[in-house]
Write a protein that binds this DNA or RNA. Structure first.
Lengths: 256, 256
DNA sequence: TATTGGTCAATACACTGTATCGCAGACAGA
DNA sequence: TCTGTCTGCGATACAGTGTATTGACCAATA
């Protein structure tokens, strides 16, 4: 509503106060709390408490709690290494994807905020810029729309995959020991459901599938996306089965 | 912690109470509130109020608020039409993807819950089962791991894409009129940032890219994923550039 | 020296999810 | 019909949340 973002406002000068404070310190304290106990542990009172300050003190540096969350997200984006310019595009996008995944594993709360609202902090912008620059100038991606479509697809996959992976890991370890299958984790309910025989595919997944290397699944999915982009934009290749142009896209109604 | 899920427990018999209540009624009231005002509007007090009941009344049908959210998610999964068995797999997956997207547009709060925790309700399970069955028996997907990899990739993309799309739409309309570009929406901040010239790709995206049809972007991304799956599993095709097997996957450390 | 302006802690408010408690009414047995 | 017990529900209560307001202090300015 107020069109001013956090990054618009200067920090207040650090007066000689009981403990000198800064946006950076606040964000770091918040991140530490979130790393230890999840996003629930990030309350303004607790963050302030970790800095030996009253809750209201933070409002000198932050206008709302959501701003703090935005700052946290941006800080994490800053941690993600970007590929050097000139890297081949598949390798570059792969590197970025792995960077996001690694960051999410270090800071599981990251996925709760990822994609929840647009990220407009400086590090986020740098990140997006670098991702887009990855495809700039390549003959396979003549227009900005081609670039955006490809990068957008990769990012959508990465966000979804990482979110799902973290969610599953969290659910597993929240329900007791880290069993190697979520059947054990979610208790007899799933077993009973599977015993009805109405979910043969799910049963196969639970009992027969290989649950050991989630990382490999991530890489497989990423390869799918990258392959799809490559074959689509490699001149002379007409890939895909019958439904290359999806039938009856749900786009027409309520388009916006 | 308590290994009993909602779907484990029977509903209490509907006694002749002030207003007869049921899990179904509660969930529907909650969904109505969420549709109108977002997830913030779903508090136990408000849901109960919408049913002319005290907040504590709900605890006869629900053990915790998270359970209510799970029930809401499962209800939406129930709304999503599934392809008839026998549909060609690309068409089937496309149909499911569009179904999820359409549901998310009807119920924007759906994306806030999507993938946040494993969905184990009956409708969710039916949904996953059907998605997996889509690829069952096809020679291109000999093992359950092939099936799971492909379906997982599609779902990851769909979740990420839909989430991003809804988030952007929400951000746009929350900051005043629905401008056609988010530059206007997020105010002068972005313009000033772009004016620095340090983000040429972003500037191109904002000023030159086609922001009118998000549906087309979704379909494009989806095609990428499907194409990737198809070419990967079409015997005799060795697609992709140099980084077909991603280098130095970040999987090795902290594997779990 | 008097005044002003800004920083910060304390208080307060509306709201959240949920534990506890006591009541009212339904039903079982005598 | 009377009496117990049992159950479902409302009221109350509690700890916690984000944030608006207030008032005190303290530095710099007039």
């Amino acid at each position: 509503m107020s069109n001013e973002l956090v990054w618009d406002r200067p920090e207040p000068p650090s007066k000689p106060s009981p403990t000198p404070l800064s946006r950076e310190l606040i964000v770091q304290a918040a991140i530490r709390l979130a790393d230890e106990g999840g996003l629930d542990e990030v309350s303004l009172r607790k963050v302030a408490g970790a800095l030996n300050a009253g809750p209201m003190r933070l409002y000198g540096y932050i206008e709302t709690k959501d701003e703090l969350l935005d700052l946290m997200v941006d800080e994490i984006y800053g941690e993600i290494a970007l590929p050097e310019p000139g890297t081949e595009w598949r390798a570059a996008l792969t590197r970025i994807a792995h960077g996001i995944r690694a960051a999410a594993r270090r800071h599981p709360w990251f996925v709760d905020l990822l994609g929840g609202r647009p990220h407009q902090g400086p590090n986020s912008l740098k990140h997006i810029e670098a991702s887009l620059a990855t495809l700039d100038g390549k003959p396979e991606f003549p227009t900005i729309d081609h670039v955006l479509g490809a990068v957008g697809a990769v990012m959508a996959f990465v966000h979804g995959a990482v979110r799902g992976e973290i969610a599953e890991a969290r659910a597993e370890q929240s329900s007791g020991m880290t069993e190697e299958q979520w059947q054990r984790a979610s208790g007899p309910y799933i077993e009973r459901v599977l015993a009805t025989g109405k979910f043969p595919m799910l049963a196969k997944v639970v009992y027969d599938a290989d649950h050991t290397n989630v990382g490999a699944m991530f890489d497989t999915g990423l390869s799918y996306v990258l392959d799809g982009i490559a074959t689509r934009h490699t001149p002379g290749s007409t890939p895909g089965g019958s439904a290359s142009a999806p039938s009856a896209p749900t786009t027409a109604p309520a388009g916006r």
